[in-house]
Design a protein around this nucleic acid. Structure first.
Lengths: 205, 205
DNA sequence: AGTTAAACTTACCAAATGGTAAGGAAATAG
DNA sequence: CTATTTCCTTACCATTTGGTAAGTTTAACT
């Protein structure tokens, strides 16, 4: 149980850090700048998170928490088979659109060798394993085409990360409401998943 | 005409900088480190490029030069209509596979607000304008569906940039020869372009 | 040979950055 | 009221970084 807290300073730091990490990147983010924007001294940040890397990890952890909660929600629904996958994709795209910062963070942290990549990997591995096992069992009973589950999952993942790039590029070109491209991406992803996984799906080519 | 040159130091600096910028990013790249790796003093780099940003711009310029040359090559071929687009896509994917560093650089520099983004924009704009004009003329005579050319071009662009992410993610997961995913991406891009542009293409949905 | 320009080095620096050490305020517990 | 813990601040520092200034070496031109 928490004791007293001045006024959610920790949360505010996390918010601001997410903003900065996801738009400017980890290296370009200075603790002093974050602190100043919050009317707080840098040491306050270091008090709560000990190091800059610790701050990033906390940000990643919170973001991943959001994501995992949403995934959990779908996974606990009574949707079966293909509808389940579709619901997942839908949910992720919705989340991505609602919280673009999460996407930016994901892109920042997805680069291998980046500071946050280890943490991301640690957080994602259980999800990945779970999905892999499920897919393998589906394959065994013939409800899913036999392919490398990792490959499919990672490709889907990078599609979502790519979405961050796309939205940003379009925005930089002055195209604000980029809903149609996003919708197209989702359809593409669904198609990709169907082609890769659905044994009953007739390939039109 | 150049005078004397010790031994292509400038080129070696560009090579090393490309490597570092595209894998570690601009901020994480230190001039001292590049210099040391070349057995040269930092000031040598600054002698050739005056500032770090100048170095990045030079790297971007050279990379864009490669790209533009390749594009030029296709544009000067006698391929017509749809085959032309297909050849372009094929060429870009081939280039991307052959020179992954270019992809990495592109991703680094594509982030709006990044140091190199202005330069990239300057270099890309003529290409973009040329493509836009061509597409508009094709639309006028009915050889192409009417859509926003910018949207199509930028989406295609971000697909290629996304490819960088995908290859890196897969590699980080230990999947080395990621040829199939790349091929799939290319097919997807082609499909996307067909759906967006080809008036005779029957949408299977 | 002597002059000039290019290529590179040594010496130095101001600013920014992440981080340590220690102390003060404020709230809770006793 | 006092002791203690949480939260945050002031003071300070070591290091790194991009960059300036002023040589020094090397090659070319005359």
């Amino acid at each position: 149980m928490e004791k007293y807290e001045k006024f959610g300073t920790k949360e505010k730091i996390l918010d601001s850090a997410l903003e900065s990490f996801s738009t400017s990147g980890f290296d370009a983010t200075s603790l002093d700048v974050i602190a100043k924007s919050l009317g707080v001294r840098k040491q306050t940040i270091l008090y709560h998170f000990t190091t800059k890397k610790g701050l990033l990890n906390a940000v990643v952890e919170r973001a991943a928490g959001n994501l995992i909660d949403s995934i959990e929600e779908v996974l606990n629904s009574d949707l079966k088979g293909w509808e389940r996958i579709e619901a997942l994709a839908r949910m992720i795209f919705r989340l991505a659109l609602r919280e673009p910062l999460l996407l930016g963070l994901l892109r920042e942290v997805s680069r291998p060798g980046s500071v946050g990549s280890e943490r991301l990997k640690i957080l994602m591995t259980p999800l990945m394993d779970r999905a892999t096992l499920w897919m393998q069992s589906e394959m065994r009973v013939g409800r899913m085409r036999r392919t490398d589950p990792r490959l499919v999952i990672l490709s889907a993942y990078s599609t979502v990360v790519g979405l961050a790039t796309e939205i940003e590029v379009l925005r930089a070109a002055g195209i604000e409401q980029a809903l149609r491209p996003v919708a197209i991406r989702r359809r593409e992803l669904m198609r990709f998943l169907r082609v890769s996984l659905d044994p009953d799906y007739l390939q039109s080519r």
